[in-house]
Structure formats: structure tokens, C-alpha cells
Design a protein around this nucleic acid. Structure first.
Lengths: 124, 124
DNA sequence: CGGACTATACAGCATAGCAAGGTAGCTGTC
DNA sequence: GACAGCTACCTTGCTATGCTGTATAGTCCG
């Protein structure tokens, strides 16, 4: 993917940030559903996923929100190396919210793709 | 599509709003690329797309941003019935930005789906 | 002790979406 | 003329999220 740098880079970078909104919450819930995770582990897990740059300062507020909303619950357990870890698990409400969100995600994907499909000449 | 109403509805509604961020900009650019459109027409076009609720208060700020960034250019033309219309078209920079954004969109789709695919038991 | 790594948390900022409201042009009806 | 109704565009104020940077604190090891 070769794009000439400097051409509306600020706009693009900003847009990439905006697109993440909401989707990180979905990713975190999806990651927790797959297996028991603690905060720092989520950071490391999602960081290697292409397109999902994420850092501690983003994940912990998300986890706090999800806990405040009753979608996840946390259990502190001692760690073999370092401070105690806070393991997260979905509550029934969290599982239901995840289902609704995953459902909406599929709908959004179809919607966006349909607005992009009207014409297929994306190549220059 | 039966979800018991009232269960974390506020959270879900709010999340749905957040997910739209950035994606509406992509949709608008995609719609403009497909055919010449004016603001009010974009509203009517995208409003009927499932999952993409959109109103004038959202579209016009987007169009202003895109014009300020030099991604689209506008030409005023008289309308057969009503006030003059402002028709929008992609600039070369806009076409390039759209390509980058569409590219990132594909990457994001894969990333989110991969975090959701670890386990497939979404059914209750 | 002091450095490195792990783990969580918070303050402050920038930005987008949206409801609500405002302005203005054109058509038709009374 | 006066009013209603639709078209078309734009702005303001609010809210919520993501991100950078910073703080704190525990454990291990030389």
C-alpha cells in the first residue's frame, strides 16, 4: 500500500482514531468472552491485532465503564510475577449486550459496504 | 431479533451512536463518489440504509469538514423546486483519502471479526 | 538499594454525532 | 395577500469516547 505521505495525513489519522470509537468496546467484550483475561493481557492481545492499536490508557477506562454498566465482573487474583491481576468475565447482561452489539456490527458492515459498492473503480 | 427491552438499553443506544463515528464520513465520501449528490439528497439516500440513521445536523457538518480539508468541492446549481442545491464532487485528494479509508475499513473489519471469531457460541 | 517489568488508574484534551433550532426559496390554496 | 408545507442549507450546545501523559504500586533480580 503506497500512499504519498503528507497528503491530508492529519485528516486520515484523525479519522482512523474516530473509527475506533465503540469498536474497541466490542473487541474487549469479544476478547473477554473468548477466554478469561485481565486488563494488561487484553492490551497485549489486541495490540497485535492489525488495525487495532490500543494502549493501557484506552483499555482501563473501557473496563471501568463495562463494570459500572454491569456487563462484566472482575475478580482479583494474585499474579506469579507482579501486582495482583483483575480477571474479567461477562455477566449475563454482558453476554446479551455482546450479542446485540455483534448483531449491529453485522448490520453496519453491510450498510457501509453497500454505500461503497455502487461503483467498483477504486483503482486510480 | 428479539431482545428484552430495558436491559442496558442506554448503554446499547449510546454504543450504536459511537460506532457511527468516522463511518458516516466514509459513507458520505462513498456516496459522493458513486454519483453527484447534494446535501439533502445524501441525507435521504443514507437515511434509508439499514443501520445508518443520519440527519441534516450530521451530514452538513461532515460536508463542511470535507470541504475545509479539500477532499470535496461544491458547485451551486438552481433547483427545479426549491432553493439552490450545492452539488458535491470528490477532489483528487478526496479520491485518494477515500481509497486509504476504504483500505483501513477492510483491515478494521478483519480485525474486529477476528476478535469475535475465537468462539462461535453467540446463540443463547 | 535501584532498576525493570507488571498492573491499574486518572486528569485533561480533541473530536464526532445529534437533537434542536434557524433561515430561506418555491408551490399551492384559501 | 397570507398561510401551510416541503425543500435545502446551516449553526449551536451537549455528550461520550479515545488518547497522551502521568501517577502509583507490587514483584523480581543483581
Amino acid at each position: 500500500m503506497l500512499y504519498s505521505p503528507g497528503v491530508s495525513d492529519h485528516f486520515y489519522d484523525n479519522w482512523v482514531t474516530q473509527v475506533r470509537k465503540g469498536l474497541l468496546e466490542l473487541s474487549v467484550l469479544g476478547a473477554i468472552r473468548a477466554r478469561r483475561l485481565y486488563g494488561y493481557d487484553i492490551v497485549k492481545t489486541l495490540r497485535v491485532t492489525d488495525g487495532l492499536v490500543i494502549s493501557e490508557g484506552t483499555v482501563y477506562p473501557i473496563l471501568s465503564r463495562l463494570r459500572r454498566e454491569g456487563l462484566v465482573e472482575a475478580a482479583i487474583e494474585p499474579s506469579p510475577d507482579g501486582p495482583a491481576r483483575r480477571y474479567y468475565a461477562l455477566t449475563p447482561a454482558g453476554a446479551q449486550a455482546l450479542r446485540r452489539m455483534a448483531d449491529h456490527w453485522e448490520r453496519i458492515k453491510r450498510a457501509i459496504d453497500s454505500t461503497m459498492q455502487k461503483d467498483r473503480d477504486l483503482a486510480p
